[in-house]
């Protein structure tokens, strides 16, 4: 299965390892153990985000039968921040202080998955809507959630605006390393389920009618996929904040260079591309160019241009 893409996989793997080593060891000034532990945590976060975003995007493309919209374009990462904020709002109101750490995270995940499924049902399964309508609706929904979060934060605490800023803007420098121990198992569990679903994914990709004809429980499978996507989106957003176009960028690179386009291949290759981009990009910007927190902006810019090109090329065909 991997044969036709072996060279791609090997070179991407080597490139990732090179960037990881560079990221960990470049220009360590003082204590090695401290630097490795510090950078190691950050590295793990970057790798987790990369895998989560790449996987969720590819799955989303399959579930929705198109390659233009992604979970983050549909405003789902903004949705997660909105859910977090609303929960914070209500928990703050009822003084639920003991509610912290894993429990809080799990509740957030639970609400995210249910709301995500409801929204997906509302947007995708009712009526036959064009992909452009969905994309536009999603983008506006994203703006809506962001404004609402902004609004709630204002009401919660009119003086401190800084908290909100860090919530709403992604930054690879200020990643939430303390969430690793919750996030990592969740992502691994998701990947495991994706692995179990791998054959069904190929059939889902053929469309609803074919899938039903081939005896796959279409609805159940798609809902399982959506739950996985919801968790992956939630985890990556919790770790780093919203990044609109990263998924689009890496998935389309993967579609370009993958010869045998089964899901396992696509997910692995896009994840590797994502790791290279994030770890390599962070290494170049932070360590080589000494520019702080600009990687996310650069990714958004390139991703946005990619999206424009995809839109324009899609209609030329």
């Amino acid at each position: 299965m991997f044969k036709s893409d072996r060279n791609t996989l090997i070179s991407l793997g080597l490139l990732s390892i090179t960037f990881i080593i560079l990221f960990l060891t470049y220009n360590v000034g003082g204590s090695w153990s401290f630097a490795l532990a510090f950078r190691g945590k950050k590295l793990v976060v970057l790798v987790l985000i990369a895998i989560a975003i790449a996987t969720s995007t590819i799955l989303f493309h399959t579930a929705t039968q198109n390659r233009i919209i992604t979970p983050s374009i549909m405003g789902f990462d903004a949705l997660f921040i909105f859910i977090q904020t609303v929960l914070l709002f209500f928990m703050g109101a009822i003084q639920f202080i003991s509610f912290e750490g894993i429990a809080k995270f799990l509740v957030e995940m639970g609400v995210m998955v249910s709301v995500f499924l409801a929204m997906f049902y509302w947007l995708f399964l009712r009526g036959n809507r064009s992909v452009y309508l969905l994309a536009l609706t999603g983008i506006i929904l994203g703006i809506f959630f962001r404004s609402l979060v902004n609004f709630i934060f204002r009401i919660l605490d009119p003086n401190s605006f800084a908290v909100l800023q860090s919530e709403l803007f992604s930054s690879f420098n200020a990643v939430e390393t303390n969430l690793i121990f919750i996030a990592a198992p969740m992502i691994i569990a998701c990947l495991f389920f994706v692995y179990l679903l791998r054959y069904k994914l190929e059939i889902i990709a053929l469309g609803k009618n074919t899938a039903v004809a081939l005896g796959v429980n279409y609805r159940a499978t798609v809902f399982a996929m959506l739950a996985i996507i919801a968790i992956l989106v939630a985890v990556s957003t919790a770790l780093v904040g919203p990044i609109t176009f990263f998924g689009l960028l890496v998935s389309h690179l993967a579609y370009q260079i993958t010869k045998h386009q089964n899901h396992l291949n696509l997910i692995i290759i896009s994840s590797l591309i994502a790791i290279c981009t994030l770890v390599g990009g962070q290494f170049i910007f932070e360590k080589l160019l000494n520019m702080q927190a600009t990687l996310s902006i650069v990714i958004e810019c390139i991703g946005g241009i990619t999206f424009l090109l995809i839109l324009m090329r899609a209609h030329k065909k």
């Binding site: 064009s130 452009y132 536009l136 902006i297 946005g304």
Partner: peptide, 17 residues
């Protein structure tokens, strides 16, 4: 619908610059 979609993207790109 493609028109506002493209416009918002263009705005996003300019905004990120």
């Amino acid at each position: 619908l493609l028109v506002p979609l493209v416009g918002i993207m263009l705005g996003g790109v300019i905004g990120s610059v």
